[in-house]
C-alpha cells in the first residue's frame, strides 16, 4: 500500500495565521489586516463619529500586534474577537484623550418584563418592505451608542451574546437588554410614525 502525501494550500485558520504573525511572517499579518480592517473600521465608526480617530485606532491595533508579535499569547480561539476587543479599548483610550473625558458607562441591568414584548400588532406584518427598510435606517440613526454597538456586533458581526458581553465589558444580561431595547424602540418608533401619519390624513380629510 502506498499513500501519496498531499497537502492542501489554502487560507490559514486563526491559529495558523496567529502562529505566523508570532513568527514574523508578513504574509500572515497582511492576510489578517486584509481580512479584518474594513469590518473593524465599520465597528469603530459606531463607537466614535470622528473618522480620522477611527482610522488611527484601527491602524494602531495592527501596529501593536506587529510590534508586540513575539509577546502575543500563543493560544487564540478567535483573531476576530481579539481584534474587536483591542479596537474598542483603543477607541475609548483615544476618546478620553481627545475629549479629556472618561467614558461614563451607564449600565442598565434591570430586567425587562416579558409582557412588553407582546403588544405585537398585525400592522407590522402588513407593512411593505420599503417602509421597513426606511424604519430600520431611521432607527439606527437615533439609537443610543451602546444599543447600536450591541446590534452591530450581533447582526453584522454575528458575535454571540457571551462574546459581545466580553467585548463591551458588560454582563450578558446587559447585552440582551441593549438589543431588546433597540428592537422595542423599533416598534415604538413605528407606532409613533403610524399615528403621525394618521393625524396627517385626519387633518387632510377634515
Amino acid at each position: 500500500m502506498s499513500v501519496t502525501f498531499e497537502f492542501i494550500k489554502k487560507n490559514g485558520t486563526d491559529q495558523e495565521l496567529w502562529a505566523g504573525i508570532r513568527n514574523s511572517n508578513e504574509a500572515a499579518f497582511t492576510a489578517v489586516f486584509d481580512l479584518y480592517h474594513k469590518p473593524l473600521y465599520n465597528y469603530g465608526s459606531k463607537l466614535c463619529s470622528n473618522t480620522s480617530l477611527v482610522e488611527d485606532a484601527v491602524q494602531d491595533v495592527f501596529i501593536d500586534i506587529w510590534r508586540l508579535r513575539q509577546g502575543l499569547t500563543p493560544e487564540i480561539t478567535s483573531i476576530k474577537f481579539y481584534l474587536y476587543r483591542a479596537l474598542r479599548r483603543r477607541i475609548h483610550v483615544g476618546l478620553s484623550r481627545h475629549l479629556s473625558m472618561e467614558e461614563i458607562g451607564m449600565l442598565d441591568d434591570e430586567d425587562v418584563p416579558h409582557s412588553i414584548a407582546n403588544s405585537e400588532t398585525i400592522l407590522i406584518e402588513t407593512e411593505s418592505s420599503l417602509i421597513r427598510a426606511r424604519q430600520v435606517q431611521e432607527l439606527l440613526a437615533k439609537l443610543p451608542e451602546r444599543q447600536i454597538e450591541a446590534i452591530t456586533l450581533r447582526y453584522f458581526e454575528e458575535f454571540n451574546t457571551e462574546e459581545i458581553a466580553q467585548i463591551m465589558g458588560v454582563s450578558e444580561k446587559s447585552v440582551r437588554n441593549f438589543i431588546y431595547k433597540a428592537l422595542t424602540s423599533l416598534r415604538a418608533h413605528r407606532q409613533a410614525r403610524l399615528i403621525s401619519t394618521l393625524i396627517f390624513w385626519f387633518t387632510l380629510v377634515f
Partner: peptide
C-alpha cells in the same frame, strides 16, 4: 493569503 498556507503546509 494562499501563500501563507504554503509556508505552513
Amino acid at each position: 493569503a494562499a501563500s501563507v498556507a504554503v509556508i505552513f503546509g
